[in-house]
Design a protein around this nucleic acid. Structure first.
Lengths: 349, 349
DNA sequence: TTGGTAATGAGGCACGTGCCTCAAAACAAG
DNA sequence: CTTGTTTTGAGGCACGTGCCTCATTACCAA
């Protein structure tokens, strides 16, 4: 009995079954399924009713075959040469091979993160004919936000990637930066042990939403759980090495009680080498973001005590699956694509 | 130019193209692709050559459509009622919905983890006709190991799940338990701070490979990095509450210098409630495994300081993708399906 | 050469859906 | 009623592969 039941439940209804159940022809079912005009409201309802009753779900493989559909996706990423981005690009190339069997093609398009106008222009030029979806990593500006909206209206799947845009709280791929900051704080508190003192916070710029959120989460957790620690105001390097050196040195001198340093930017290399050149002792706890060859090595060498990371491979594959899900109008399981905040220590690299 | 290039590279060669390129008929191509007999070695080579040259990869959607293929997978899991397993079962149900569009059906089959004979008998009864693949969570025994091998020989994809079998170092789904143990140790060391003392280690049984590996990793890291800590011999509860209470109490009394407790088993509930009933102070660091409603709450209440976890949803989906990959003879990206060792603290639950 | 077998080709149907055409039916307005 | 429009049906081809059958060719040995 069990077997028969299973066998039955494993036969998926087809459009033919639908037609029979709704008492219409396959042509009409087709019109309803693909939203074509010229069907009476009443008939549409009958078909939809049948869909529900039979639990019909269109056979995507067959549909894609019929349409010889291809999924062309574009990753619009900042130019920059930091190691985290390099990783992302590399993972995209790897993902290509994995998703080849699903008829997915990915391309990387470099955009100028500091020129919202050019980004918007680029996005506006994309047509649904050429591109099925775009994953966009860009700081939030009204122009970019609008360009994304227009893309979606034109039928192109658009997904904020790693950097979030306020508009879409659910529909984006990346970690919860506030929680990431809080995690950094907790790790900091625990590594510092009972010691009392200040914590230096280094960022590239506090303009971006990501940095702001990390900072908020960091402060919340420090205040909540480690009142004996004092988080200093953020130092902004603006990606300038000389500036970074001078402000970090000054900050160190001004706060001799520093027990920890939190490097908030995604590129930890420069701040850390500056710290090293300034002979900051290992007893001062150092926590950074993102797994890169550099941070991995630093963890091993104990130049870093902890790293808060998001897996680049997972980010990329998640973005692809999400884009594909949008294009296919598939139900996606929210929890499936939650990007985890990883804590890297020496042992779990 | 860019566009044309892309358009060309985006047309996948078909068996027809293959036939033309190899100078044979589609029938012969078919014989080669599907390993049928009666083709001259020479011809086979020519076809394979063409496959390489064209970069041919069979269109899985079309093939599955033609065969009206369904993927029926079975998760063979221990009966038990622990929360971690409950989560797994729940995730399987969720995954069903997500993978429905891929024609994947999953079933949970409860097995008796303590009866290798019955497990082996169950696996032996599975035929390639009914089942495309099985994910097996079972402690390692020669009988189970052999049954898995025979399954594979019969053409059923078989994948050790969460509990590893020595035989397959690469082909299984779960975390690296040795690294997990080491991570627990490192977390322990950091939370304990500079304090000196002993660490209690509680397990259900040291018979299983998983426990052994965790213990090895734990000891390695403690010895390496925290010489001021002393890891006590493992306490084995054998799942018996009375026994657990008495040995834990005795262990606490015998070692007044205990500064940390490592609960190695996947079910932390009972050991922890025993510890609570024994009034173990919060200053003693407690680390356990697996994210469950219980451990989440315990982290929030600060009854637990850290949890080493593997994401059940990811485990399940990874197993399904792996099984499907095996059945489809697809290339799988190793790194894609690496299960991460997650560190859960209060902030990143 | 002949007979026999092994190797190959030609062709067709099926899978489930998308998309098209043309005809038939239902309906509304005059 | 007729005329015109809207709605529906019938049917067929295409997508790329698997799996048949039957015919044809190549090759080997007697």
């Amino acid at each position: 009995m069990n077997k028969t039941m299973l066998a039955n439940s494993m036969i998926r209804p087809t459009t033919k079954d639908l037609a029979k159940a709704a008492g219409v022809s396959r042509a009409t079912v087709d019109r309803v399924l693909n939203g074509r005009e010229g069907v009476k409201k009443d008939t549409v309802d009958r078909v939809n009713q049948a869909i529900k009753e039979l639990g019909f779900e269109r056979n995507l493989q067959a549909a894609n075959l019929a349409k010889s559909r291809q999924y062309r996706f574009i990753f619009a990423l900042p130019r920059s040469g930091d190691q985290f981005l390099d990783q992302i690009v590399q993972r995209i190339a790897e993902a290509q091979a994995v998703f080849f069997a699903d008829h997915v093609w990915c391309e990387v398009q470099h955009i100028d993160e500091n020129d919202p106008h050019s980004i918007s222009a680029y996005l506006s030029a994309l047509s649904e004919k050429d591109v099925a979806g775009v994953a966009i990593m860009s700081p939030e500006t009204p122009q970019v936000r609008d360009a994304i909206r227009r893309l979606q209206e034109r039928g192109v799947a658009a997904l904020p990637f790693i950097s979030n845009q306020t508009m879409m709280d659910a529909d984006w791929v990346g970690i919860d930066n506030r929680a990431a900051g809080a995690t950094a704080a907790l790790l900091m508190g625990q590594c510092v042990g009972g010691r009392k003192g200040s914590v230096m916070v280094i960022s590239e710029s506090m303009q971006s939403r990501d940095s702001l959120e990390r900072r908020l989460g960091f402060d919340d957790e420090i205040n909540d759980s480690f009142p004996h620690l004092h988080a200093l105001p953020s130092l902004e390097t603006y990606g300038n090495e000389d500036r970074a050196l001078s402000i970090i040195a000054a900050n160190l001198k001004a706060n001799p009680d520093i027990v920890g340093i939190y490097v908030m930017a995604s590129e930890a290399r420069k701040p850390l080498s500056i710290l090293q050149s300034l002979n900051v002792p290992p007893s001062i706890i150092k926590i950074a973001h993102e797994r890169t060859p550099f941070t991995e090595q630093a963890l091993r060498d104990r130049r870093l005590d902890g790293v808060i990371a998001q897996d680049p491979g997972h980010l990329v594959r998640s973005a692809i699956r999400r884009l594909k899900g949008i294009v296919d109008r598939r139900q996606t399981l929210g929890s499936q694509e939650n990007i985890r905040i990883e804590i890297l220590l020496r042992t779990n690299i």
